[in-house]
Design a protein around this nucleic acid. Structure first.
Lengths: 245, 245
DNA sequence: AGTTTCGAACATCACTCGTGTTCAATCACG
DNA sequence: CGTGATTGAACACGAGTGATGTTCGAAACT
């Protein structure tokens, strides 16, 4: 686990912590801790005060993109590979934001497809491809996450029909369906689902038990769920194809 | 001048050249030349054949973005600074594609503005800003240039009104007005101009004498031209404010 | 068949990035 | 107002990275 993530969690759990404590805990020098705190403060994770920092992460809120991106990479890669295998050449695909979908984007780089990613991270991962047709949706990128949201994004989605939507989400359960932390994100995801003939949800195991704030769609809107765990959680019973990567 | 640019020009001027010739000319090893040719071939600049390469650049065509980006940086920076000085805090700005406008984007990073860049390069330069509101237009990014074009881009522009449009162009003259190499680009520029109350053209000296294929707008559509040369070329006579950086 | 060209693999070098150390300036608190 | 803790700028160091050169077996052209 990266030191930044370690600091983030320690400060979140303790509420606030001193620089010296963090230095002891991580084995790094105080100067390095200060530099780390500066980075995390810029990301909005915590707030600095003289001698330490206090957490700004609310419970049930997502840590910023930069911290999630190199976490659980194995599971993400396997899920991404399984998702990519479900997509046939020539399809048009709308690709959700989030770290799991970013992995999917990397695997699609040399495929022959039409892809509209909903996050600038994925756009950048794909912009050097010469084989696929890249479509950028309009919108306002959310800081850090770089997920595109807002009326321009919704308009871009409504103007098009896709073969497949690949949706990454913050929570999924048979009872509450697909849920997201951010209200704007939720409406974008909903628009993406509406514009697609087939919907694939890419969900790592940690999301299967969780439920987030904003409702996106019921489980019945999904055609397939790709996950890395065995826990089925009643999804199969609800009529969804569950693919275990 | 970078070795890649040197090779590009030598091959363009000679039509085709051998690897050994290029190695002698640049002082690099043949292996390095081969690697360079591979890069340039991927950019569509030239075509490789056994023993050398032949140019694919048509006369009057623009070299790819990667080769233009670190060329004439002084002039570009000065022009960009002058353009940035013309923009007041709080404005909404649409920012054209191209290397000059990318420099403008860098200068706007910490300003308080609403900015819609028409190229992904500029989007990336601005996406880490916490002070400005970044709007991404939809569209299909042109390979290399990453300029957004197509119906999604036009729709994004038509949906909004800007205070200022900053346009970079391929050619500008009092007689033929603003011209661009690419037809798609031309219609995007035209839409950007139509959506803006004030239009600033950022043009380095080399463009002032040139005329490109596609007509964008007459000189009368411009409110100010920022350039680095003294040559006025009848623009002032046509009623345009010329700012010399 | 012989010669040339090519590109994969490895070595080398410069450069960057992250980290640690030092120290003067700054801040908080008695 | 003074004293000790904290901070951040500046420099040093080491690991990792990217560009270049060299070698050599394979492939291609004549």
């Amino acid at each position: 686990m990266s030191r930044l993530k370690q600091i983030t969690e320690a400060v979140r759990d303790a509420g606030s912590l001193g620089v010296a404590d963090l230095a002891t805990m991580t084995g790094a020098s105080e100067m390095t801790i200060r530099r780390d705190l500066e980075v995390l403060a810029a990301q909005g994770v915590l707030e600095r005060y003289r001698g330490g920092a206090r957490s700004l992460l609310l419970r049930g809120e997502e840590p910023p993109f930069a911290l999630r991106s190199d976490e659980n990479t194995d599971a993400k890669r396997r899920i991404a590979a399984a998702v990519a295998a479900l997509i046939a050449d020539g399809e048009s695909v709308v690709l959700d934001s989030g770290t799991t979908c970013l992995e999917v984007a990397r695997l699609l780089h040399d495929r022959r497809l039409t892809v509209m990613p909903l996050s600038l991270h994925a756009v950048n991962a794909l912009s050097s491809s010469s084989t696929l047709t890249l479509l950028v949706p309009g919108g306002r990128p959310r800081p850090g996450e770089l997920a595109l949201t807002g009326p321009l994004t919704l308009a871009s989605l409504q103007a098009l029909r896709f073969d497949t939507a690949v949706i990454g989400c913050c929570g999924l359960s048979a009872a509450h369906g697909l849920t997201a932390f951010d209200l704007e994100d939720a409406s974008v995801k909903r628009a993406a689902i509406t514009s697609a003939r087939r919907v694939i949800a890419a969900v790592d195991a940690s999301k299967l038990t969780r439920t987030a704030l904003a409702h996106v769609a019921p489980v019945s809107a999904l055609h397939a769920v790709v996950t890395d765990a065995d826990g089925d959680d009643g999804l199969t019973a609800a009529g969804v194809t569950v693919v275990t990567a």
